[in-house]
Amino acid sequence: MTSQPRSRRAAWTLVLVAPAVAELTLGTVPVRMIWLVLLYVPIYGAGVLLIRELVRRLGGGWSSVLAMGLVYGLVEEGLALQSLTSPHLYDAADWGPRPFGVNAPYTELNLPYHAVFSVLVPIALVELVFRRHGRAPYLRRGGVIITGIVAAVGVGLLRVSVPPSEDPHYTLPGDTALVILALCAVLAFVALSVLPRLRRPPLPGVPPAPWKLGAVCSLASFGFLALLFPFAGADHSAFVPRAWVPMPMAAAALLAVCTAFYLARTGGWTDRHRLAAISGALVAHTAFGFAANTDNVPDAVGLAVIAAVMIYLLQALARRLRTDAGVPAHATWATL
């Protein structure tokens, strides 16, 4: 299926890391129900691995990964779960306005969430762990085909398991499904054909200190989630009345754009800078999980254990990167 053992390990690591980052570290799947992750492994694991293989084979960069992450979000949330338009699933229709039948705050939250935390962060982490492999494909052509089949099965598995039990009276209208498929096709074309041709060499210059990048990504991640996801008993986004929800939606969009612009304009990143940005985003994302997804002591304890394991593994990777770069291995986490 792959050309060498290192590639196989990298591929299988990505298959496991993707659902763990997206679901476990946010607490949406609590430890007491960890078996549910098995349901997500085909769509997350195979889906994200497929995205990584297609993007890297066609010469795409991180912008292509993000664009394909939006495709992933449209497929999972729009087609498999039907949550972007369902009037009942996850109470998403109650968060705020529903223009053209679309759960707008839920959509604004989840499409970027999947692009960043379901797709980009797992790929970036695994490429740091197996950085000597670089951006070379992990799979041979046959492996890519099998991965695509497994991902498609994962979409079907999610479709026949969650919506019938959580929202049995809603079926995605055919015209809406066609619109979603058209958006997926356009985004995939841009990601895999247009953006690779527009890639520029990395920007030169001195990047901010790694801890500053971590702080920016941490604040941006927590702020984006808090502005859109109703938590702590709130019925609507950002604790505002339903009619005012467009205000936090606009603030979240502005925050995302400003953060993306800031990160895109900083050059000279090393692996330590990348890990610092990833770590800041992950820690803040898990901190928000405590506020939003732990309604009882067992769930809070379970997420605390996951957070501790996550931080330990991030620190271990940081020490490895520092050692490889010639920095003393005993340097503290703050020196990332």
Rank of each mutant, 00 (worst) to 15 (best):
T2D: 11
T13A: 08
V15C: 01
V21K: 06
L24N: 05
L24D: 01
W35M: 10
W35K: 07
L36V: 14
L36S: 14
V41L: 00
V48Y: 04
L50W: 06
R52I: 10
R52W: 13
E53D: 05
S63D: 15
V65I: 15
A67E: 08
V71R: 12
Y72D: 06
G73A: 13
G73M: 05
E76G: 11
S83M: 08
S83C: 11
S86N: 09
G96V: 00
R98F: 06
V102I: 06
Y106E: 01
Y106T: 09
T107I: 02
Y113F: 13
V116Y: 03
S118A: 14
L120Q: 09
E127F: 05
A136M: 11
G148Q: 08
G156K: 09
V160C: 13
S161F: 11
D167C: 12
H169E: 13
L172A: 08
G174N: 13
T176D: 01
L192D: 06
L192I: 07
L195A: 10
V206D: 14
W211K: 10
G223R: 02
F224E: 02
L227W: 01
L227E: 00
P230R: 02
A232H: 08
V240H: 04
W244K: 07
M247L: 10
M249E: 04
A250R: 00
A251E: 00
A252T: 03
L254N: 03
A256I: 01
Y262C: 11
R274V: 15
L275E: 09
A276N: 09
A277N: 08
A281V: 12
A281P: 05
L282K: 03
T286R: 01
N293C: 01
G302Y: 04
A307N: 12
L314E: 02
R320D: 14
A329R: 15
